[in-house]
Nucleic acid binder design. Structure first.
Length: 880
RNA sequence: GGACAUUUAGCUCAGUUGGUUAGAGCGCACCGUUCACAUCGGUGAGGUCGCAGGUUCGAAUCCUGCAAUGUCCACCA
């Protein structure tokens, strides 16, 4: 037996964690190929390779890893598949920004495609290495042999295959439509990449010309140079006479507009003038009208007046070409004023679409791009992609149950979003990403996974939206499009976690891709976590300067401490705060567990006599243990990480350390029980705190590896103590607390020799080492009167100060120096409270409605409480 | 404009189908240190569960309305 007395008094996390992780990895425990049992796969949400991990990632990893380790110990064949995301626009924007800070004016022009991509790749590889290292540091039990990257060759094959299939199914099309355009980024972006920022703006109300009959309003006067129609509501009496008419108006600077008055339901008659200047080229809603008119056979024109460079085009007129949007606006408004056409100019607050990566205002510009159709029926499937996304969370499909989203309120949000999805613009004018698998030669176009045969083919210069590859992440990581064993074993995956901020961006796309390509719903459960904020509730961000490096925290406090401090006190879908006191409390508990273990190990090392009979305390702690094990299991099964951990902490610290171990010091002979208790709590804690538990398990030389030790779930695993915790013990525990309080209330010095009398009618007072528990061993004298005595015959002698503990009466000898008046008043107050409680409880129990309708358990519980309260009342009465 | 969330002890938050006299951590007050742990032990103070109605034998929990805060969505030009 090793000598445990030499172990350090405080747990030194930094000294052991690295070696422990390396040993796990080496043992192959992370790799499911070495395991049996029912498959349980968690695919890691791949962190962006834009930098380093933050605390939010640490939270996500803690959730994933706790679930993975729990399931692994339960005998499942667990795959936690790690990976990183190339994050197309985010990474390219970041590297371009860095290059510009280093003095480059236009990195794309100066470096060209190949060199810039190389720069980005170098950066990405560096952050990838950092990130992977960080994931190891937090202890995530990921299978590194299956490490994936959204931009590696394997994923490239899959992405191309997916694109080609969708194209062949007619879901992907090339179309000239209004896109979201970032001038700064020189690329399209999807609706989801736009952040709406409120800012002050001006609303101008004006007429195109003196002889034009309708007044319109706009916040973007410069775009009016591209107007081709004015839309009014079809039933608006004011404008009936004009519908269908075409007006030619001179807007100065060599521009003449042909404006047709059209009717459209989308126009609100009550808003502004009830008429809307239609700019098909620079507004999504106006473009929709343009298409509607075209379909009706009454086409209107489309005139782009803003170019991709953010400057006015030649079509804006000779006086405007080359001007910036702002300059053009000023010029046009000035012209309106001089012509007397401007009727009103109001200050308003407007929500402006802004690029979340490049930060500039998004322009709507018509362009030819690649799109994914949400409304087209998939051949041989009889359903649209939108329908596939819908049924995946409602009725399920292909024999898969619907995804269970925790908390389920997000299901409704998801569905609302699915209904409002527009076609997805897939192409980006970025260089960092999967290149679109399309080649052109003159008028010819080829869509395929490989370069077409023959001379002169040029590949589409654009790349795919980053979510195209991350959307297919659950199955491309498992080897699709090959029919691999992994795919068969682990897909659909079991459990997935993500922050609510990417529920739309990511989850919908994963569902879309998986239900389309595999006819499988990609996961059974989606657990949505909140955002981690700083102590003031602010989001962590670089610009706010409140970022915290999880690795530094781990270095100082240990990975386990960080994990439990992130996991405790949270609830799914809600934000949580991080602050120093929390991590300290995590560290303190880790240390507590360390010292509990140290005590048990030294005790079982020296205490070689094992008692064969169980004491009251033994029975109590073992039944509590099995009760807690069952409850923690149930909570983890339902993803209640916080509740499970806190229950376990309360048991470990409160029941085990503060009570049982103190009793064990006196009772002795507990080698077997203490060993069993230590093993069980180490197992139960392992998913939450893998390092310290593994470290202790190793020091103790317990059998096997903790990481794959069988999970304790109930009585049979902790030694057949299935009975409910003894109420007798709980009563005695209360008695001890009450005795301690009485001593403190009387201000008795710790070393003073005093005498207690405890009068009780039932119970096993002698079954607890009361003297030791209440105070200093030698200094106390205690007379216990219980069991056979009848209450009438026993009275507390004079000179004792008295307290009530349940039905027991405690007397503390003050050698006559008792304030009888005060004592009486105290008892009276207590009696008053208990009377109140008794009468309200009696009233409840007397209510037939209650006894008839409430569950038996509730009624019985109340009766028991009442009986106890009545006993206490009798005892109190005797003292008055 | 729409939707969602939050409001419980000084602070940060739990509270799972409505059911004992509402909990935790931190903080606070008092007592305690050779005995696993001061990163500790003991004891205690502290809450009309945002407000107003309603349903129910019973409401922090369900319903309605209101208020404050936060988040997301939206093509009000």
């Amino acid at each position: 037996m090793a000598d445990f007395t030499e172990l350090p008094k405080a747990y030194e996390a930094a000294a052991v964690e690295g070696d422990i992780y390396a040993a796990w990895e080496k043992s192959g425990a992370f790799n499911p190929d070495h395991a049996k049992g029912e498959p349980f796969a968690i695919i890691m949400p791949p962190p962006n390779v834009t930098g380093v991990l933050h605390l939010g990632h640490a939270l996500e990893n803690s959730l994933m890893d706790t679930m993975a380790r729990f399931q692994r110990m339960r005998g499942k064949r667990v795959l936690l598949l790690p990976g990183t995301d190339h994050a197309a626009i985010a990474t390219q924007a970041k590297v371009e920004k860095m290059l510009m800070e280093q003095g480059m004016k236009n990195p794309r022009q100066e470096l060209g495609r190949e060199q810039l991509v190389e720069k980005i790749r170098t950066f990405a590889e560096e952050s990838k290495a950092t990130i992977i290292n960080q994931i190891r540091t937090v202890g995530t039990s990921a299978d590194w042999s299956r490490l994936a990257y959204t931009l590696d060759d394997q994923r490239n094959i899959a992405v191309k295959e997916l694109f080609v299939r969708m194209y062949k199914d007619g879901l992907i099309y090339r179309g000239y439509r209004v896109v979201n355009w970032s001038v700064k980024g020189q690329s399209t972006c999807s609706d989801d990449e736009i952040e709406h920022v409120e800012r002050p703006s001006k609303l101008y109300t004006f007429k195109y010309a003196k002889d034009f009959p309708i007044t319109i309003s706009t916040t973007r006067p410069e775009t009016k140079l591209g107007d081709t129609a004015v839309a009014v509501h079809p039933s608006d009496a004011r404008y009936q006479q004009y519908i269908g008419k075409v007006f030619t108006v001179d807007v100065g600077a060599c521009r003449v507009l042909e404006i047709k008055v059209i009717a459209d339901e989308a126009v609100e008659p009550g808003f502004g003038t009830g008429a809307l200047g239609v700019t098909p080229a620079h507004s999504a809603i106006d473009f929709a009208m343009y298409e509607k008119q075209k379909a009706k056979g009454e086409p209107i024109g489309i005139i782009p007046v803003i170019g991709p460079d953010g400057k006015m085009t030649a079509d804006a007129g000779a006086g405007y070409v080359g001007l910036s949007v702002e300059q053009a606006r000023e010029k046009f408004v000035t012209w309106l004023k001089t012509e007397g056409l401007l009727e009103k100019e109001e200050d308003i607050v407007q929500s402006v679409g802004t690029s979340d990566r490049y930060g500039d205002v998004i322009e709507s510009i018509p362009m030819t791009q690649w799109w994914l159709d949400m409304n087209k029926v998939i051949p041989k499937r009889d359903k649209t992609l939108r329908e596939l996304m819908r049924e995946a969370v409602t009725v399920g499909a292909h024999g898969n149950a619907p995804v269970r989203i925790t908390p389920d309120r997000f299901t409704k949000l998801y569905l609302d979003r699915v209904e409002n999805l527009r076609d997805w613009c897939l192409s980006r004018q970025l260089w960092w990403g999967h290149r679109i698998p399309v080649w052109y030669r003159g008028e010819e176009m080829y869509v395929g996974t490989d370069v077409p045969l023959g001379e002169g083919w040029e590949q589409d210069p654009d790349s795919l939206d980053t979510w195209f590859s991350s959307g297919s992440w659950t199955f491309t990581t498992l080897g699709w499009p090959e029919k691999t064993q992994d795919l068969k074993t682990f897909h659909p995956t079991a459990w997935m976690t993500m922050g609510y901020e990417i529920l739309y961006l990511w989850m919908m796309r994963m569902v879309l891709m998986s239900t389309y390509a595999l006819e499988e719903i990609p996961f059974k459960d989606a657990y949505i976590h909140g955002i981690l904020r700083d102590e003031h509730g602010k989001k962590f961000s670089k610009s706010a300067g409140n970022g915290i490096d999880p690795i530094e925290v781990i270095h100082q406090y240990g990975s386990d401490a960080l994990r439990i401090s992130l996991l405790f006190g949270i609830s799914p879908g809600n934000d949580s705060r991080y602050y120093t006191e929390k991590i300290e409390s995590g560290r303190n508990f880790t240390n507590k567990l360390w010292n509990i273990s140290r005590f048990i190990l030294t005790t079982i090392g020296s205490d070689d006599v094992a008692s064969t009979t169980k004491t009251l305390a033994d029975e109590w702690i073992l039944s509590r243990m099995s009760e807690v094990a069952a409850s923690v299991t149930q909570k983890l099964e339902t993803f209640q990480f916080s509740a499970a951990g806190e229950e376990l902490r309360d048991f470990t610290w409160g029941d085990l350390a503060d009570w049982y171990l103190e009793i064990a010091k006196v009772e002795k002979g507990k080698k077997i029980i203490l060993t069993e208790l230590l093993q069980t709590i180490l197992k139960l804690w392992h998913p939450f705190m893998p390092f310290v538990t593994e470290h202790i398990w190793g020091l103790a030389r317990f059998d096997g590896k903790l990481i794959v030790a069988p999970w304790p779930t109930g009585p049979s695993d902790v030694g057949a103590h299935g009975n409910a915790p003894s109420p007798e013990f709980e009563r005695l525990r209360l008695l001890v607390t009450d005795m301690r309080r009485l001593r403190q209330e009387q201000g008795i010095e710790a070393a003073k020799k005093v005498e207690f009398i405890v009068i009780d009618h039932v119970g096993a007072i002698h079954e607890l080492p009361l003297q030791e528990l209440v105070g200093q061993n030698e200094a106390w004298i205690m007379r216990l009167i219980n069991g056979s005595c009848t209450s009438n015959k026993i009275a507390m002698p004079d000179g004792y100060v008295v307290a009530q503990s349940g039905s027991a009466t405690i007397g503390l000898n003050l050698a006559g120096a008792v304030d009888l008046e005060k004592e009486k008043a105290k008892a009276e107050k207590e009696l008053e409270e208990i009377e109140k409680y008794i009468s309200s409880t009696e009233a409840k129990l007397g209510n037939v409605e209650f006894t008839a309708k409430a569950p038996e358990k509730v009624v019985q519980g109340m009766k028991d409480k009442l009986a106890e309260a009545q006993a206490k009342r009798e005892a109190l009465k005797k003292r008055l």
